[in-house]
Design a protein around this nucleic acid. Structure first.
Lengths: 339, 339
DNA sequence: TACAAGGATGTAAGCGCTTTCAATCATAGT
DNA sequence: ACTATGATTGAAAGCGCTTACATCCTTGTA
């Protein structure tokens, strides 16, 4: 029968029952220093019997290192972020680190709170997979000498690694394809136009379409991300009279919302209107019609993020700068323009 | 210009610069005890200038309380869990608590690890929104006198609150509807049949169909949850020759996978086969065709979870037992049986 | 004017762990 | 048998914070 652990079970208690000092228990539990085999097993047995779990806060305080990686994401509902998180978490665990997440819901104020929380937790490294970063936040970070990786940030930041996606090139691939199958009136659907990664895509869209002289554009921005946002933005486009034959969306979720709204208004996809997404989340393959989109290798990003952080922490390696190339995935939500 | 914070910025440093003792700084920062107004502002100014953030681990150690709620979920990709999490987090924040999540991917071993991690973190309360709980884990918890809430656990556990969903009643609503619109051959699609909440639904399905004499059932279990699982399970059903006119799925994601596979094999939904889900995740309204499903009030669950935990922590209130009633949502993925 | 009652601060003892440093013990070499 | 060497262990000093408890000022009051 395992012993009932008390609510205030400390290493000292274990030491006492095993008739050794706390130092020895610590050595056993951390597998450092040298401990006689018989002592080791005795300590382990007692710890087991007591169902003892070390207090991570005390441990962190004593060690002066939290062995924890922090990650702040904009929208935790977006599986896109989750995939990055999970890949990073996998690597972190493999190296004995924990991960903690915070999400901001695209609110700058919440970002600041999350950032402070991460600092309060004394994370050993921090990944910011958020769109709303601005310079002042980076200041908040400077001085705490922890490795940082920023996702989707255009201007480089001192001592911070960057992972970026080449949105321009991605959007260009989609627009080129659409143009080649006859589309001349294309709309672009996005949200939060002030966020840099969003505006980068908008800009890329505009520029690319401009390269194809006879084509024209229309830009519709919703006040919110996701399905609702897509629907709203689509409604605006359709109400505008622009009558697009193709709608390019800033991400897959918005594309789903757009498709939903088109269908609501009696338009078929892709016969009447072609729709493209961005991200290639898992669902985009499963929804109807399967979505033409741009694949971003989220696992790869997660691994890069973890590696940048961990190598910075453990070996003090310098910051990196990585550019990810999206890949065009042709499915059934796009087709030739209606004549 | 704000001062460059050093990497080892402690409360003591703040105290030193503000020419007061650490006790006073602590009082100011925690807003307790009495401090002269001029002192307070001075301390706050210094803290601000230094960009000081208290070390949460030290704080926790000194306070003996982490002010943190833990939540363990099976599958973090499932927006279902996320919604519960966010609702709970909202309440937690409102009461000055942080939240940390861990996910298990339905692995019992991972559950144990997560559980230990939560204990190591000395969370003040723990919610387990997992399907794979078993008695031994509860033992692991007993003795640590922290409020616990278990989701979807059939047998009551001492001192633990429970929140359950009345799956039987939910499945019954779906089956009744299907029967009434003429379905006689219904299949049930699930995964991990050994998990209690899954088997509960299976059982409810079988029993309900049995109540309608002329109807027959077929059960198909995939080895994995989610879209892939749904596809696999559908493939099995279709290959079996059972030729169902309706497929009842254990959750919405599997339903999406099922629909995808049906379409792949040239079957129309709902004309050839009706499909129902369970959970009513947001996407179920947006996918095509919009999914008939059973709504579970996730926000409500999240609030109940947080409230059970927080009231247990703060006021020592006893454990509760809540049953949630799912609500049938009729959309377009179901219709009369083909004749 | 002297004294009680608070208000404002500082002192110092932990919280539960890790980690140096020194002390002790066992073993091998001579 | 005696010392050198390395393996084992324990004592104790923090890690950065909170929190009695003690101390020293202010006031208001008799």
């Amino acid at each position: 029968m395992t012993k009932q652990p008390s609510s205030r079970l400390s290493l000292e208690e274990v030491a006492h029952r095993a008739k050794v000092s706390t130092a020895t228990v610590s050595r056993v539990l951390n597998n450092v220093g040298s401990v006689k085999n018989s002592t080791r097993t005795r300590v382990l047995r007692v710890a087991q019997e007591l169902n003892y779990q070390p207090n991570m806060h005390a441990r962190m305080l004593a060690r002066g290192s939290s062995r924890t990686l922090g990650m702040i994401v904009s929208n935790i509902e977006n599986p896109f972020f989750l995939d990055i998180f999970r890949a990073a978490e996998y690597d972190a665990h493999a190296q004995g680190f924990e991960m903690v997440v915070a999400h901001t819901g695209y609110e700058a104020e919440q970002l600041l709170k999350s950032l402070r929380l991460m600092i309060a937790r004394r994370v050993a490294g921090l990944a910011m997979i958020v769109s709303e970063t601005d310079r002042s936040l980076v200041e908040e970070l400077s001085g705490h000498r922890i490795p940082v990786v920023l996702y989707d940030v255009t201007t480089p930041v001192d001592n911070a690694s960057r992972v970026r996606v080449n949105y321009g090139s991605g959007i260009r691939k989609a627009v080129q394809y659409l143009y080649h199958v006859g589309h001349r009136r294309m709309a672009f659907v996005s949200h939060h136009a002030t966020l840099p990664p969003i505006s980068v895509r908008e800009k890329a869209f505009r520029e690319t379409v401009d390269d194809f002289a006879p084509a024209v554009t229309w830009i519709s921005r919703a006040s919110t991300d996701g399905l609702e946002g897509g629907r709203l933005a689509a409604r605006k486009v359709l109400a505008s009279g622009f009558d697009p034959t193709a709608i390019v969306c800033v991400n897959d979720f918005m594309a789903f919302g757009v498709i939903r709204e088109l269908r609501e208004q009696g338009l078929r996809v892709p016969e009447d209107v072609s729709v493209t997404g961005f991200d290639n989340i898992k669902l985009s393959e499963y929804c109807f019609p399967p979505l033409t989109t741009l694949h971003i290798p989220r696992d790869q990003i997660g691994h890069i993020v973890a590696d940048a952080l961990l190598s910075g922490i453990k070996r003090g390696e310098p910051a990196r700068d990585v550019m990810i190339e999206p890949e065009f995935v042709l499915r059934d939500s796009t087709g030739p323009a209606r004549s």
